Simulated assay, not measured.
Amino acid sequence: MTTTPTQLLSDAGVSIWLDDLSRGRLATGTLRKLIEEKNVVGVTTNPSIFHAAITTGHDYDNIIAAKAAAGASVEETVFAITTTDVADACDLFAPVAAATKGVDGRVSIEVDPRLAWDTAGTITEAKELHAQVNKENVLIKIPATLEGLEAITATLGAGISVNVTLIFSLERYRAVINAFQSGLEQAKDNGHDLSKIHSVASFFVSRVDAEIDKRLDAIGTDEARALKGKAGLANARLAYQVYEELFSTERWALLADAGALPQRPLWASTGVKDPAYPDTLYVTELVAPGVVNTMPEKTLDATYDHGTVTGNTVSRGYDDANATLNALDALGISYNEVVAVLESEGLDKFVASWKELLNDVEAALAAARKDA
């Protein structure tokens, strides 16, 4: 029996999650097929994914018509649609969650991205989403803004599992791990079972290369061009080094003794944006034990078809990763400026997608009321 690249990836300690969800995927069984055939053990969503799902085709016409007849607002309609899809996906992945004691089989849903700078609003919505989905294997996604850090701690402290998203910098990642561990300390004080609280930290990869490659092209020297396509991997590998460091402390040992599980690094934005690069670059070059890689289906298919898995490709690359970031700094490319731009752009894109979704659903509600 042939062992597939996705099976080898799983065997190497990488959990494969799909970065997509729609009612069509659930209804047609295509998501179930990915679980059965391509080792998919979880799903992530974001505002852009929901916008694409809800505004393409007619899968949501009936629920929009029902909400229109009930006089629901656009916010209520979108809340109902997204939480229903996520709850149904949680049911599909429930056997995976049971088999892995909740480590995998996870489905993520993000708080309204317009709340990314609103700590109290994020905490409130995180609790509302968690209550509405009402599935043990849901993860509530919270952006890793400065305002989000306190919300991450409070949400975990309430016993709710969290996917921390939009992490670009190593400094912010350290702050995210601190927020996670503070949240578990609060949860312990609040009497929650730490073994039931799960978290991932979503570190974005390809967007780092897209931004830095643009700056390297502007410099235009052979030295600059030689660094193209290296920053994203270097940044992610050094993030894993931070993970190893901060989950080897006495502080963490106390939490682990109380039943806590580590917050796993999750590689996000793993679809290659430059066609000159191998289409499995951000998968096969980021293999390490205890990580998640969430992939768009195109990247998943490429990995399944021709990915070459050669064991751990992260831990042995720390020196080269540091050398890459140092070389970029020597060329005048500011790491801190790049990650700040990427966080701002990432949030702006999600807010724009969310607003487009609300506008499109509002128009659909209006049309449904007119036809009724």
Rank of each mutant, 00 (worst) to 15 (best):
T6N: 11
D11A: 14
S15W: 09
D20G: 11
L31M: 12
K33P: 00
L34M: 14
T44L: 10
N46C: 10
N46K: 09
N46Q: 11
A52S: 14
A52G: 09
A53M: 02
A53H: 00
T55E: 00
I63R: 03
I63T: 13
A68D: 08
A69E: 11
G71R: 07
S73E: 03
E76V: 05
E76K: 07
T77F: 01
T83M: 03
T83S: 05
D85C: 11
A89K: 00
F93G: 02
A99D: 14
K101N: 13
D104A: 10
P113M: 06
L115R: 07
I123A: 04
K127V: 11
E128C: 01
E128L: 14
L139I: 05
I140D: 05
K141Q: 10
I142R: 03
L146N: 14
T155P: 03
A158M: 04
A158H: 04
S161Y: 02
S161K: 00
V162F: 09
T165G: 08
S169H: 00
F180A: 03
S182K: 15
N190A: 12
F204H: 08
V205H: 01
V205L: 07
D209Y: 04
A210H: 13
K214L: 11
R215W: 05
G229W: 09
L233S: 09
N235G: 10
A236R: 10
L238D: 08
A239C: 15
L254K: 15
L255F: 07
A256I: 03
W267Y: 12
T270S: 09
A276T: 12
T280H: 07
V287L: 02
G290A: 05
T294M: 01
P296E: 04
L300F: 01
D301P: 02
D305F: 04
V314E: 05
R316Y: 11
R316M: 14
A323P: 06
T324V: 15
L325K: 04
A327H: 04
A330M: 08
L331E: 09
V338R: 05
N359H: 13
V361Y: 06
K370Q: 14
A372V: 10
